[in-house]
Amino acid sequence: MKRRIAYIAGALLLLAFAGFSLTSFQTALTPYVSYPEAREQARTVQVAGGLARDSSSYDAESSSLLFTLVDPATQQTLRVRYHGVKPANFEDAISIVAIGSYDRSRDEFAAGKLLVKCPSKYQGAEVKTYS
């Protein structure tokens, strides 16, 4: 009897942990979305694209970086603001992944993290993460 109770308790605990893991997984999942989708959602998402030429400006006082992403497939654009130190060689980026959420009040994408791919002679490309 005692043993059966222990087994049931163990199974319940495992179930609880599985549920906890799955909900954490769903909350933590940041999906890749298109720019129009990013504008509609409040949750954390990631967007990718190229850097629009001459679109980036950096304000050292507030340490905020403002730039425009261009979707190479659709030519849609998205204005992105990132708070933090400007990534090295940022102007040379061939592709940028921005992780964050859309800020409706300022009408721009507020990125908390950037993945910047720079052209490199080494295998693939050099990617650096900034957060």
């Binding site: 997984f25 933590a28 999942l29 940041t30 890749y32």
Partner: peptide
């Protein structure tokens, strides 16, 4: 394994995605 496979698991969904360090830290705490 589940977290690391997120891009693969969600590949066939509408929007593939990934999970960040928060996920791993959270589920490994208990």
């Amino acid at each position: 394994t589940l977290g690391t496979s997120a891009p693969l698991l969600t590949r066939f969904m509408e929007n593939p995605g990934q999970v960040g360090p928060e996920f791993y830290n959270r589920v490994n705490m208990p």
